[in-house]
Simulated assay, not measured.
Amino acid sequence: MSSELHMICNYKKCKKPLLTRAWVTSCSHAFCQEDGAREFSQGENKCPACKTVLPQKYDIVEVDLNPSEEFKSMVLAGMRIETIFEICNRAVSFWNYQISQQYMFHAMSAKRAKDAIAELETVHETAVGKLTSKLKMLTNRMKDMKEEEKSLQQRIADLNQQLSLKNQQVQKLQNKNTALKQRCASGSMSDYVEDERLHAYHHHHHHRVPNARPDFRMAPRTLVGSDHADGCSQRVNTEFLKAVPAAARGTGFHFEPDIPNAQFDGTSTLFSVSRRSSDGSKQKSKS
């Protein structure tokens, strides 16, 4: 007999195959040796499967599932044929009931398994959908971040280019400043002073007021010509203190400090130039 046709213990928590000995009941249930001996030895002859009361002597029988040949030869010997067929019919009915219950049990187990699988598939599909959506979102975000990174790199490149140009301008200004400092240190400002002297001289003759006696006063902070409205302000080096009087000699201009007891420190200075008009009044402005 194949193992697929073996009866199983009808106890709910057991369900193991019945191979050697079994406890059978008149309500068509079978139990393994351990469960039957435990349940039926308590004095309550009640079926553990259907809770049917079993009061009769042959309502619970312990049987040998592998009887000897002598037992098979003698168990039905001498009985009438009707009795033999009735006994066989009842035994076959018991077998069919047990096999049908077994199939029902397996079908129920398969249904529970299918339901669990369907539920797991639903959970799996939901999880896959969420992960797919999240993956799509992350992919789009990564694409946006790459575009932003590209834009930032371009901006950094532009800023680096601007910084390079600014550095070049700063370097040029530093070189120019260094050259000017060297010229000041070596006394090479004479050309600049001469240009300023000539510019002031020509500017005065170009705007000279008729019948006015030019009389300029020199101060160590400003140089302003009073013969025009805006004051003729010029920033020059203090070497102009030596150059202007010589240039203006014979022109009627007079230079004198506007601040008493002023001291010259050798740096660039603004001069205040005032001019007296023909009536002797003084016109003066500062910048």
Rank of each mutant, 00 (worst) to 15 (best):
S233N: 14
E86P: 03
M218Q: 08
S285G: 07
L18I: 01
T251W: 06
Y58R: 08
A246S: 14
P67Q: 04
N261S: 15
V170M: 13
R112K: 01
H199Y: 15
S93I: 08
S226E: 15
E256I: 12
K282C: 04
K13I: 10
Q98N: 07
A229Y: 15
K181V: 04
H29C: 00
F105S: 00
D64F: 03
L131Q: 11
K181W: 01
K136W: 04
P48V: 01
S287K: 10
K282M: 12
N89T: 12
Q162E: 15
N167P: 00
R235A: 12
M189V: 05
M142R: 15
Q154V: 10
Y58K: 09
Q42H: 04
K282W: 10
A243F: 05
D215L: 15
L223E: 11
N160T: 13
C27M: 00
P67H: 00
E34G: 00
V63Y: 02
Q56W: 08
Q56T: 02
H203A: 11
V92M: 09
Q168S: 12
G225W: 11
Q171G: 09
K150Y: 06
V92G: 03
L135C: 10
E149A: 15
I8P: 02
Q101N: 09
Q153A: 13
M104K: 12
F264N: 13
N140E: 15
S100E: 08
G78V: 03
E148L: 13
K172E: 12
M137A: 10
N45F: 02
I84W: 01
S151R: 15
Q174R: 10
R141S: 14
C184Q: 08
S287C: 06
L270W: 13
Y11I: 03
K286M: 07
K284P: 05
M137P: 00
V236W: 03
A212Y: 11
E149C: 07
N160Y: 06
K150I: 13
R155P: 02
D144L: 12
R21L: 09
K16H: 09
Y103L: 13
V209R: 08
V236C: 09
